[in-house]
């Protein structure tokens, strides 16, 4: 994201682009585990939506339809609070690529 210089910034330290944090993909922090949605077990209680700190539960036309992995950090609150006997959300292992940054 290009940062504006002092001559370009709005006077008064204003940020007029409400909600532009969506370009910050918190899903890149996720390491090791991610939630998996099993639709057949879902009773649409919306607890996962409620307890997701990173707004990563996808709701489409009034239904929970899975996760937005761009934002999911893999905390596991959704799977923990999923109330069904056969869980509709399980945490699974995830291979992560470690990108080594070049030494300066």
């Amino acid at each position: 994201m290009k940062k504006e210089t002092w001559t370009e910034l709005a006077i008064g330290a204003l940020n007029l682009q409400a909600g532009n944090s969506v370009s910050n993909l918190t899903g890149t922090w996720r390491s090791g585990r991610k939630p998996e949605f099993i639709e057949d077990n879902c009773i649409q209680c919306f607890f996962c939506w409620l307890y997701c700190p990173h707004f990563a539960v996808r709701v489409e036309e009034g239904k929970v339809t899975g996760f937005n992995y761009d934002y999911c950090t893999g905390c596991g609150l959704c799977a923990e609070e999923c109330p069904t006997k056969e869980k509709a959300i399980v945490m699974v292992k995830e291979e992560t690529k470690i990108i080594e940054e070049g030494k300066k």
Partner: peptide, 11 residues
């Protein structure tokens, strides 16, 4: 909205 930088599992 999403994209905030709060910790994993933050309340």
């Amino acid at each position: 909205v999403a994209g905030h930088g709060m910790c994993l599992g933050c309340g």
